[in-house]
Computed example of a mutant assay.
Amino acid sequence: MLLIQRSSDPEEILLGEFDIIAAGAIPWRIVDGELRVLVIHRPRYDDWSWPKGKLDDGESIPECAKREVREEVGLQLRLGIPLEATAYTVNNKAKVVYYWAGQVLGDTAPKVDGDECDEARWVGAKQAKSMLTNPTDALPLDDLIDAHLAGLLDTRSFILVRHAKAKPRANWTREEGQRPLAATGRRQALAVARLIDCWQPDHVASSPWLRCVQTITPYVTERNLKPKMVSSMTEHAAQRKPEKTVKALNKLLDKVRCQVLCTHRPVLPLILPLISARAPQAVRKLLPTVDPFLEPGGMIVLQQPAGEHERIVSIEIHAPYND
Rank of each mutant, 00 (worst) to 15 (best):
Y98E: 04
L2K: 03
E308C: 09
G16T: 01
A189Y: 01
L261H: 14
R42W: 11
P227W: 08
D113Q: 10
I159L: 14
D291H: 14
R223E: 11
K285M: 08
K247A: 15
V39E: 10
V39G: 08
P27M: 03
V256G: 02
S7M: 01
T221S: 14
R311N: 11
T184G: 00
H163R: 09
A25Y: 07
T289D: 13
T215C: 00
E243G: 12
Y98K: 01
S60P: 00
Q200W: 06
A109P: 04
Q127M: 10
A189D: 03
A22C: 06
Q127T: 14
A128L: 07
A25W: 08
L14K: 02
E71Y: 04
D19L: 00
P62A: 08
V69D: 01
P168C: 09
E222N: 10
I275Q: 08
L149N: 05
A182C: 05
C258N: 13
L195I: 10
K54S: 13
A182H: 05
Y45E: 07
L195T: 09
P208R: 00
A125N: 06
P280S: 06
Q103F: 13
V90Y: 07
G58T: 05
C262S: 08
G53C: 07
E222K: 12
E222T: 11
I275S: 09
V213Q: 15
R174S: 12
L149D: 08
W100E: 08
L79I: 09
V161Y: 08
L144H: 07
E176C: 06
L261K: 13
D202T: 15
D202H: 14
D47R: 06
R284T: 02
P269I: 12
S157H: 09
D56T: 10
L35Q: 12
L55E: 12
L160W: 14
K244A: 15
M299E: 09
A128T: 08
W122P: 09
Q200H: 04
H148W: 15
R186V: 04
E72H: 01
A23N: 00
K251P: 04
H309Y: 03
G102R: 13
I159H: 09
